[in-house]
Nucleic acid binder design. Structure first.
Lengths: 210, 210
DNA sequence: TGTATCAAGAACAATAAAAGAACAAATTTA
DNA sequence: TAAATTTGTTCTTTTATTGTTCTTGATACA
């Protein structure tokens, strides 16, 4: 199969990304409208080339619209707008992270993660309640061992206790600050603290509320 | 089996979506009325093709209406497993929902949605801040038109303004209650309020904080 | 410069669909 | 039971839509 031209690529990308938004396979005219073209004559040629490449099903004069082949649909699977992250366990202030028994995975939308490796924790406790992070919420953590002041981090204290807090780092002191006015900021020696990741996303289910 | 023509597709979609609203299988004339056709002659041909495709049960002159086969009902099931939801737009208290221009879809983990149809909105404003729902958060809404007292709903006020609030419904009064102590509960006539969905999930990105 | 790609549009052929007439079978009503 | 009505079926005719094929001209690129 030859490499696709720019336009062929654009059309396939468009179709793959908008499969869901067409309730049925679009006709050439509909595609033209969606793509901003004024006439379907030239689009037809491009579609035919894609039929040749095995990415679109032949239309042979049937009026059934432009349908992607299974092969084409597979192309998009890896580059979906989400990815599967490891659900590691439960984080509760003052305790080690309680790992869950069987490794679980959760599909997390790109909107609340980053390009870098991330993992998921479930939050236990109210220490970040004023930041809108509640007991039972999930948090998405980007895995890294450094953070900037003011970021929310998973911090390992004295190699034993894990906690989710705002961090402030100074030459001779590291502060872990809760978002809960009934709790106090904690002061540590920098060596006592290991950063295990930085908060990049959060999510919550309201299903069990009922 | 060949792919369906547009009209065949439309009819199957219609039947699937309106199964519940027909007390008995619709006759050809009823279907014509529902679909805006003036004569059943042409509809019959299309139905026969669908019988041939195994999606509709053969009628053989029985006057009992059009029934989908089990196979046809399965067609929609797989898309249920998919966790791709429509990102509809932005909800800001006191304004209509501001639809986004191009239909977008977001992949939402099963943990923060339900089995029923859901859609996604972005929240603007602070009216639910004490419930941990902040300006800029996404909310996942289960699409239904009724709610129980104490649930958080997308309510359409006077057919014009949309808002996200706790709801309390009494025979002669409906209350929309914010989760923000600097705001007041609003009192309405029940007829002023249309429920457009119930909150089932929430999520937030911390990426832009940096 | 020549080549490949692409947009626009005209013209055409095939298919799909709408409308309606006429009839037969099933069902309901009187 | 008989008549009336509804429903499904089979046609034909007409219209609309969709896919196809060409030609012309513009643009990008090596």
């Amino acid at each position: 199969m030859d490499a696709l031209t720019r336009k062929q690529h654009e059309i396939i990308d468009f179709l793959l990304q908008n499969q869901a938004s067409f309730t049925r396979p679009p006709s050439l005219d509909q595609l033209c409208a969606a793509l901003g073209l004024k006439s379907r004559g030239s689009l037809h040629r491009i579609i035919q080339d894609l039929v040749g490449a095995g990415l679109i099903e032949a239309m042979d004069r049937k009026h059934r619209g432009v349908r992607l082949t299974e092969q084409a649909k597979k192309i998009v699977q890896p580059s979906n707008n989400s990815s599967t992250l490891r659900y590691v366990g439960i984080i509760a202030a003052g305790k080690p992270i309680e790992a869950i028994e069987n490794t679980e995975f959760m599909t997390i939308p790109d909107e609340i993660k980053t390009e870098n490796p991330c993992y998921v924790l479930k939050v236990k406790g109210d220490s970040m309640i004023e930041e809108g992070i509640y007991d039972g919420d999930w948090v998405i953590i980007e895995q890294r061992c450094h953070a900037r002041n003011g970021e929310i981090v998973v911090a390992l204290v004295d190699k034993s206790e894990a906690t989710l807090k705002f961090i402030e780092q100074y030459p001779h002191e590291t502060l872990l600050i809760p978002a809960n006015s009934s709790m106090q900021a904690m002061h540590y020696q920098p060596a006592q603290i290991d950063i295990q990741g930085v908060l990049v996303g959060q999510m919550r289910s309201y299903r069990s509320m009922v």
